[in-house]
Design a protein around this nucleic acid. Sequence first.
DNA 1: TAATCCTTGTTAAAAATGGTTAAACAGGAA
DNA 2: TTCCTGTTTAACCATTTTTAACAAGGATTA
Lengths: 230, 230
Amino acid sequence: MKPKLLIVEDDPNLGEILSEYLGLKGYDTTLMRDGEEGSNAFKESDYDLCILDLMMPKKDGFTLAKEIRSIDEETPIIFLTAKSMKQDIIKGFTIGADDYMTKPFSMEELLMRIQAILKRSVKKEEEEVFPNPFKIKGLTYYYQENRLITPEREINLTTKENELLKIFFENLNRTVERSTALKKIWKDDSYFNARSMDVYIAKIRKYLQDEPSLKILTIHGEGFKLVEVN
Amino acid sequence: MKPKLLIVEDDPNLGEILSEYLGLKGYDTTLMRDGEEGSNAFKESDYDLCILDLMMPKKDGFTLAKEIRSIDEETPIIFLTAKSMKQDIIKGFTIGADDYMTKPFSMEELLMRIQAILKRSVKKEEEEVFPNPFKIKGLTYYYQENRLITPEREINLTTKENELLKIFFENLNRTVERSTALKKIWKDDSYFNARSMDVYIAKIRKYLQDEPSLKILTIHGEGFKLVEVN
DNA sequence: TAATCCTTGTTAAAAATGGTTAAACAGGAA
DNA sequence: TTCCTGTTTAACCATTTTTAACAAGGATTA
């Protein structure tokens, strides 16, 4: 999951640039135009980091930061300040800011600071890996190696066969919708791709004949379902 | 070693001033006068940072930047833009610019930004050196020395073999897309380069026969994947 | 229930992609 | 120059994927 950033900045120019740039760098950004909007946004959703302008209409950055701190002690805050005023900076850190940037600043630098702060607080989430090997009934399936071992033989799967079979194992006993599989593997649900998939279904069914307790059922008009039969 | 800068600027006046100034400050500068020259220069040599003017004859800065990004997504890019147009700036960051400067700008500021960016990317490089030697299963691979030692023999790799093998080890168990490898090694994804790569894949596969638990699988239509097999 | 339509199954051919080998080419070294 | 080495190009073959054609099975409607 992308880290969520709350950006509260009243200058629409800077706000959009920030939002777009950070969006491109892999963050899920929310842009609010004043302190009140910012406050509401913060209450409505969980953010991993807040970037607050100091001078804003309706509710200034300090006030907003205090409010955020009173709701949640953890969420890091970076202040954007127009001029490097020592007083402001001290006040900011008193409230519990994690960093501050003096305008004009380089996007690069802001990004670096965000990364630095998030590295501290956000734990990396592991990407889910398909078990390798994956054993079921008499089959051993090595997704990583495009290889399926049946009681009868060892099959080197082609790329498409492999991707399709993986989806079935991931959804054992559940219906896999045609369009779901098509979009995942063929990136596009179209007539010809659908026909192509049907050809692969036939191929996989042939392979599964070696293990009769696993069958691919057709759910007419919806998709297919790999089931364990007794 | 001096950091290498590629400067692409069509205004000969500004171009030379930049080139001379940065040269004096300890950089190895290459000055090109339009987008096409810039593109060729980039393909011929490795640069640590690119400074691109936006408005140029033959090929504008955006197009050039996109090309550079598709070959290598690491090399930092700084844009020089005549007017601070929000659209341009956003577009620049979209492509993956690291910074931008609005003309007229001070040389000192440009220098500072170059230093800031290089400081970061040099650090990154240091962190990301390919382990030398790199050991896996029965193999020992000395990337620095173009040398691969298998249980059977010691192989002196050619440049292309070495670069390709490195990419595979860096992406162990992950798919390496054809075009990614082509752009990285051949700087250009074209029919003949692709065929050339296929020839190298065959060569590397032969070398890997000495260690049967490592195989390069073909991901049809996408690329290749070096996997550890069970 | 027959007629029809739409979806799926099956097979084969066509097209696209990749594998292999050797010859051609290019550049540097002797 | 000639030789040597690394790389590219070419030709031919093999495999994978897509397309096409037709058959079969469900669903729907009259």
